[in-house]
Nucleic acid binder design. Structure first.
Lengths: 262, 262
DNA sequence: CCCGTTTGTTCCACGTAGTGGAACTGCGTA
DNA sequence: TACGCAGTTCCACTACGTGGAACAAACGGG
């Protein structure tokens, strides 16, 4: 097979993130909007999140309902339908067994909460969470989205992204602060990304949530592009900054083990 | 809101299962085909499973890869991409908390393995599995598909489906036997479905897998249509037929509790 | 109680985006 | 060497999706 892979296949949607897109793409965006956290969504919200005209959203939703991917809850609210649930189970069930093993191993050696997240656009989405030994509940949940520049995983991802794209993302989303520690200037961010690159891991020191300290590393896809990352999450009053850095070797090993699996 | 709901919304795809469909629908079918169990799939297989012309499948896959929903593994094989994984996490994370509680309760009161499955076409798809107390591993996995006529959940679903549709399904898929106990004639099946309807639960007595005995009940959607079912799974040498029937009340309660949640 | 605003829903003329048959390539096999 | 099969490209046709605008309910202040 020739498969002239190189040069970023089709796409070339030219950086500019939100474009119109084709029928199928819109439907998928609508599906993502419906599945988004925050209970049953109203038509208007779905349309806004999916960046689709209301009338189009309406038509698309009707079609998705027809096919069982979406269900209409009382009061014109939309929720995920059985067929999407089944698809989701298919994805989870087909997940390479290695992922769970690697994450479990990391949790066991650190005793702390472990997260696996995927990068998409200007956020990361948690796709797995293993609670640590301590009886603490961290607010994160599978399916939850977080900014890139305030999270350990996000910074790990940014550090491995082409400089141009980082600039685009910062320009598009800005650097909103979430705590007093958040990095809110491009200079501070870029300086840290350089450090992250050389260390191989990133630290979030109460930059996303007070009292929460994480260490994270990017997971690189086949092309060397970061597709997501792993992190170990701790509370500041139990684990010092030095202690959390001692997790780095295990963390990096996990990140590398995950690379071929994502 | 007027919402002249009644009369089965749009659809009217008139029984005949496989129709052409619109752009979006085809993309979704392709996505399901890619996520289907059984490792990385080849283009031809995806096209066949999704019931789409090869050239269309190719174009659609290219577009899905472009958007990150599908990834191309070495050798023109297709696997689920990060964006679909993220969507799947979104779905799982947004799952009504009640589902887990109800299933957990059922597992606790019975001490046995509990399954939740959704109906789609001529199969059911397992979407949740809670292992029982016994140190036995049953072969089932989340994402796995099973025939309707050899499983407890499947028979529960069939029993609540309009007679016409049952006939269509039997005509389309036949009644292949999986064990000596499988029901392979329409007469035997119809007779049992009548019994299932009156009892409110179905039993699979080594009809799907030797040494495995299950009791299952359908979960009905808002319209009264079965959308899936719950089951309790046991091994024949530990739980007698009478014992498993004693689970019926708890099972039916679970099925009813799940109805508004699916 | 009434009027302004918001949200869900329907309609329709337009043109683009998706369609799928057929032709081509290159690999594996008999 | 000749055959067949899988992946990939091409292209003219038209069905399909598009989204602005108008309509209808429901909501919410004043």
């Amino acid at each position: 097979m020739p498969s002239n892979a190189e040069e970023a296949s089709g796409s070339a949607r030219t950086g500019r993130s939100s474009a119109a897109g084709s029928a199928a793409e819109k439907s998928l965006r609508v599906l993502e909007a419906v599945a988004a956290p925050g209970g049953p969504h109203r038509l208007t919200d779905v349309a806004a999140v999916a960046a689709v005209p209301k009338s189009s959203a309406f038509r698309i939703l009707a079609s998705l309902i027809d096919q069982g991917f979406v269900r209409q809850a009382p009061g014109s609210r939309y929720v995920v339908g059985p067929r999407l649930r089944a698809l989701s189970a298919l994805v989870d069930g087909g997940e390479p067994a290695g992922i769970g093993r690697v994450l479990g191993e990391l949790r066991r050696t650190t005793g702390q909460t472990v997260h696996l997240a995927l990068h998409s656009g200007e956020t990361i989405t948690y796709i797995r969470k293993l609670e640590g030994d301590q009886p603490f509940r961290t607010a994160s949940r599978v399916g939850m989205r977080m900014p890139l520049h305030t999270t350990a995983i996000g910074k790990g991802v940014l550090a491995h992204l082409p400089a141009g794209e980082v600039g685009d993302l910062v320009a598009a989303a800005g650097l909103p602060g979430r705590t007093p520690n958040s990095l809110t200037t491009p200079q501070a961010l870029y300086a840290q990304l350089a450090a992250v690159r050389s260390l191989g891991y990133a630290i979030d020191d109460e930059e996303n949530e007070p009292t929460i300290r994480c260490i994270g590393a990017a997971v690189l896809g086949p092309s060397g592009r970061p597709v997501g990352g792993v992190s170990v999450t701790t509370v500041t009053f139990l684990v010092s900054r030095e202690e959390i850095e001692s997790y780095a070797p295990a963390l990096r090993a996990a990140a590398e083990a995950l690379a071929p699996l994502l």
